[in-house]
């Protein structure tokens, strides 16, 4: 079986699963009622679409971070996105604030901002003599995550909203809406474009930072750019779905096994077929 055939099979599986999952649920539907049913249009269709989008966002972020940190265990949350988002969301859920902005409620907005803030702190903590290194980035990510976990625990204890906060942290698409789909789509396009645009640099980085530099790559600049992109993309995913784990770690590896490690193929294709994974 060649790579193209595998891709076609995986894409078909994705499509099949998407179609099946539209019909499944507490209310079983026949193809005939679909178009008239509000359950289909307002609940199941956006949920299925959002699950694809979130999967793509996390996978693309995982690919970028594994490349830039040169670490196969890197996932979208390694630089503190999850911890920051968790604190942001728990502030919103714990205080029960009801602010809305651009059709989004306070939980996703605060989760998004918390994620960006956490990574901003991690990046600046990891700078030694004006330069970051993969080791300091990962260590700073762990440190900030632990600190944020402590704040999260404090919020849970003081507000007593354990159930709603914990439910959010587990990750869920149960409340998916069209506005979520519309909000995250631009992030997905942005992430794919940037990752593909810099795929030759990401490839050069496979040889190590020094070798990438002798091939003309400005490693420090690339690192800022890729980390920023991966953070925005992950934060967008997390803000609508909570902390969905595993997808962002495993899909890049899964696709590498099939397509090889070249980012020219790894970036544009993987997310789509591999998406079938997390149903």
């Amino acid at each position: 079986m060649n790579k193209n055939q595998i891709l076609i099979i995986l894409c078909s599986v994705l499509l099949l699963l998407a179609v099946i999952s539209v019909f499944l649920g507490p209310v079983m539907m026949s193809p005939g009622d679909l178009m008239e049913s509000p359950i289909f249009l307002q609940i199941r269709l956006p949920r299925v679409l959002l699950s694809v989008l979130v999967g793509v966002l996390l996978a693309i972020s995982g690919v970028m971070l594994q490349a830039i940190l040169r670490n196969p265990l890197a996932d979208p949350y390694i630089l503190g996105v999850s911890a920051g988002a968790g604190v942001g969301a728990s502030i919103a859920l714990g205080t029960g604030m009801t602010l809305t902005l651009f059709g989004l409620s306070s939980t996703p907005i605060l989760a998004f901002m918390g994620a960006l803030l956490a990574v901003f702190v991690v990046y600046n903590l990891s700078k030694v003599a004006g330069r970051t290194s993969t080791e300091t980035l990962i260590l700073a990510g762990v440190a900030v995550s632990s600190f944020a976990a402590a704040i999260l625990a404090l919020i849970i204890i003081t507000t007593g909203k354990l159930q709603s906060i914990y439910f959010w942290l587990l990750g869920s698409l149960s409340s998916a809406s069209w506005s979520d789909v519309i909000t995250v789509t631009p992030y997905m396009i942005f992430g794919l474009v940037i990752a593909y645009f810099y795929s030759k640099e990401l490839n050069a980085l496979l040889l190590g930072e020094d070798m990438a530099q002798t091939l003309g790559v400005d490693v420090e600049k690339l690192r800022i750019l890729i980390i920023t992109t991966a953070t925005l993309v992950t934060a967008a995913a997390v803000s609508v779905s909570g902390l969905v784990g595993f997808v962002g770690l495993i899909i890049p590896h899964f696709v590498r096994m099939i397509l090889g490690a070249n980012h020219r193929y790894l970036v544009p294709f993987p997310p789509w077929p591999a998406q079938s994974f997390w149903w």
């Binding site: 490839n203 050069a204 190590g208 002798t214 091939l215 070249n262």
Partner: peptide, 30 residues
């Protein structure tokens, strides 16, 4: 500079998942 000077380091790691041709193609990056 990358078009004028090339370095073969002391220990180069093979990029897992790459064929010889893909590995050599990385030299075309600049």
């Amino acid at each position: 500079l990358a078009k004028k000077v090339a370095l073969v380091p002391q220990l180069m790691e093979p990029v897992s998942g790459f064929t010889v041709r893909e590995m050599v193609m990385l030299g075309r990056t600049p």
